[in-house]
């Protein structure tokens, strides 16, 4: 039978995680569904629930440090400049009961391709801080996500914080689900945009549920950088943008939606999100 340790400090938690066959348990919203279906039953768990230090959000020189145990009920109320997409994504997670327990760190480490917070954090160029008994390291989120259920988390490591750089632009998150609550994304997208003199100076697009992990749309971003709003109405540009975006993503058919639908929605979402953000940028 599993052991269940419940440390009070991150230091202690890291010590427990250094033991063989242990895994962290944040809010349990994913782990306990997995356990019901026979997964991870042979593991020992290290509860992170009492680690108050991981539930803080603090502003530092390199950005906002969001504790990995910050739950979505808190995250949906975050007002980090330029990071509206994170709060919006948090608000789309499950339902109140899930948002009260599910954590940003748990969402990342579970590594579902449909995780709501991951595309938002990717579009914000977030990094994750990982600590273990042998030290700490900071990894860009885009490098951290490795595949469905797979991350770069090494045995013994604890994700303590997510570092979200503050931005002067604006961001937005959209989600296509099959119902309005308790829905797993069929396609999700976060876009961060900065403009100057009517031209895009910085753009980051990240998508969920359209690849083995949430992905950045680097090709589409490259096309968009430097363009003006009116370019978006040009059919030729739109066709090139769509082609680029479809190269950035690799959706599949599954029980929720087809590959083609995900492709169509990904592009329509991008056009929609750009127009929303452009309006915001102009108002500012």
């Amino acid at each position: 039978m599993s052991m269940f340790y419940q440390p009070l400090t991150a230091e202690e938690a890291i010590a427990y995680l250094a033991r063989e066959n242990t895994m962290a348990c944040a809010g349990g919203t994913d782990l306990y569904v997995n356990r019901k279906h026979g997964k991870f039953l042979d593991k020992d768990y290290v509860s992170l629930d009492k680690l108050q230090e991981l539930k803080q959000v603090t502003k530092k020189a390199d950005g906002w440090h969001v504790g990995s145990m910050v739950n979505f009920a808190c995250a949906e109320k975050l007002e980090i400049p330029g990071a509206a997409c994170l709060a919006m994504a948090a608000a789309e997670v499950g339902a109140p009961q899930i948002r009260n327990r599910g954590t940003v760190g748990g969402n990342i480490v579970s590594a579902s391709p449909a995780a709501d917070s991951v595309p938002a954090l990717m579009a914000l160029d977030a990094k994750v801080m990982l600590r273990s008994v042998s030290g700490e390291r900071v990894v860009p989120l885009t490098d951290f996500m490795k595949g469905p259920g797979k991350t770069d988390l090494k045995p013994g490591e604890l994700m303590t914080e997510i570092i979200v750089p503050e931005g002067k632009g604006s961001s937005v998150f959209s989600k296509a689900g099959k119902r309005n609550a308790l829905a797993i994304a069929v396609c999700s997208q976060a876009v961060y945009l900065e403009t100057e003199n009517g031209k895009i100076t910085e753009i980051r697009v990240a998508l969920g549920s359209v690849a083995p992990t949430a992905v950045r749309a680097y090709r589409a971003e490259a096309l968009l950088k430097g363009t003006e709003e009116k370019a978006l109405t040009c059919a030729e540009f739109k066709a090139a943008l769509k082609a680029a975006l479809l190269e950035d993503i690799s959706p599949i058919d599954d029980v929720r939606a087809t590959k083609e639908y995900r492709q169509t929605v990904a592009f329509r979402m991008l056009m929609h999100n750009l127009s929303v953000l452009w309006k915001e940028e102009t108002v500012c």
């Binding site: 339902a95 119902r179 309005n180 609550a181 308790l182 829905a183 797993i184 029980v255």
Partner: peptide, 16 residues
Amino acid sequence: LVHKDFSTYLMPTAMD
């Protein structure tokens, strides 16, 4: 059965 649980067999919520 294709949709085996309440996360894939989608009954309406109060928001639907």
